[in-house]
């Protein structure tokens, strides 16, 4: 059933702007990083070896990708829910023989899936840029696949509570200004969360910072809390009358 719902959801976003956003996000992030390199190419200190080049590159892209992810997830969640809000299609969808919790899960999964696609693209664009940079610097070495995947997917997984939260807010509220505001504030908070907040504050997790210097802790906590938020949102959605 969930697969059917997801396939219907994918059909509904055909020719929608959200696809452009999914592409533009990672493209913008890597493009901006490339621009930064291009501007100071002539006088920058050359990295000693290929490994150093990649780690500089990935941390640079990572710090740009983080706010993009946090704002992007709010916008994508709002857009996917907006498809139903715009033309008051909730009442049509929910009068069909589908479980309400599956409809909610479908919206969450669609949002998560679109963001996942963005992360895949981020890894791809980073790879292309890294290879280009390496060859123009004359540095040749193996590509740190693990680091690349970590850069692309750890923050995504650690941000799961926010994906679930935004999906929930966007789905239950007709006025999308509220969830978008929550998303923007969340992004700003997380930008400052790094040094100031204790480890248990979820806004710190997507940056993968914790006292043990173990990114996987942040990832694990994010996935776990994401699941909790998702379930709470789902039960609230099922309980409510349809607008």
């Amino acid at each position: 059933m969930l697969l059917r719902i997801l396939s219907a959801e994918l059909l509904k976003i055909r020719r929608k702007l959200v696809w452009l956003l999914v592409l533009a996000g990672p493209l913008g992030v890597v493009g901006l990083e490339a621009l930064a390199y291009a501007l100071r190419f002539d006088y920058m200190i050359r990295p000693a070896d290929s490994a150093k080049m990649w780690s500089d590159l990935l941390s640079g892209i990572g710090s740009l990708a983080l706010p993009a992810l946090l704002i992007g997830l709010a916008i994508v969640a709002s857009m996917t829910a907006g498809i139903e809000h715009q033309m008051n299609a909730w009442k049509m969808t929910l009068a069909l023989p589908v479980k309400k919790r599956h409809v909610f899960a479908g919206k969450f999964l669609l949002t998560a899936l679109l963001l996942f696609v963005s992360c895949v693209l981020l890894a791809l664009f980073s790879l292309v840029f890294g290879l280009t940079l390496g060859s123009s610097l004359g540095l040749h070495g193996s590509v740190p696949i693990g680091g690349l995947l970590r850069e692309a997917f750890y923050p995504y997984l650690a941000a799961m509570p926010f994906i679930a939260l935004q999906a929930w807010l966007s789905v239950t509220m007709h006025n999308q200004a509220v969830p978008l505001t929550v998303g923007i504030v969340g992004m700003i908070v997380s930008l400052f969360a790094g040094s100031r907040f204790p480890d248990w504050v979820p806004y710190k997790w997507p940056a993968l910072l914790n006292q043990w210097h173990e990114p996987l802790y942040s990832v694990g906590a994010g996935v776990a809390l994401g699941l909790v938020v998702f379930l709470v949102g789902m039960f609230e959605f099922v309980r409510k009358d349809v607008k």
Binding site: M87, W90, T93, A95
Partner: peptide
């Protein structure tokens, strides 16, 4: 129910 629901871009 009430006014029709539809996805305008489709």
């Amino acid at each position: 129910v009430e006014y029709p629901s539809y996805y305008g871009h489709l």
